[in-house]
Amino acid sequence: MAEISFPLPDLGEGLLEATVLEWLVKVGDQVERNQPFVEVETTKSSVELPSPIAGIVLTLHGEPGDVVLVDRPLITFAVADDSAGIVGTVPQEAAPKRRVRLSVVLDED
C-alpha cells in the first residue's frame, strides 16, 4: 500500500484557509473517486469537496471547527500499489471487441 495526502485546494478568489464543518468519512472508510469526503466553509460559502482518488482513509487532518490552510494536508489515503498514479486511471483489461471482419480472396502466386 502507498500513502497519498491531499492538501486543501485553493477554493478560489485568493482565500488562504477554510474551516472544517463536518467530515463525511471516517478513518478506515473506503472512499471512491469523486465521493464527497468533507464539508468546509470559507468566508463566503460552504462546499463539499470530492475525493480526487479512490482509497482508504488513513488520516483526517483536523477536527470540525479547525481552520485548515490552503496547500496544507487535509486528508491522507492508503491506496493500492497497482492503482494509477496521481493522474489517470488503470486501463481495464476487456475482451477485444470487433465490428470489422476481413473478407479477401488471397490470390497467392
Binding site: 486511471t89 477485444p96 471487441k97 470487433r98 470489422v100 471482419r101 473478407s103 479477401v104 488471397l106
Partner: peptide, 24 residues
Amino acid sequence: SGDLEDEYIPNIDRILFGVQRVLE
C-alpha cells in the same frame, strides 16, 4: 482529453480496416 482517447488511439477496427485495405 481522456474521454476522446479511444477515438484517437488506433483501435482494433481501425487496424483491421488497414489490414483489409492491404489485403484487397
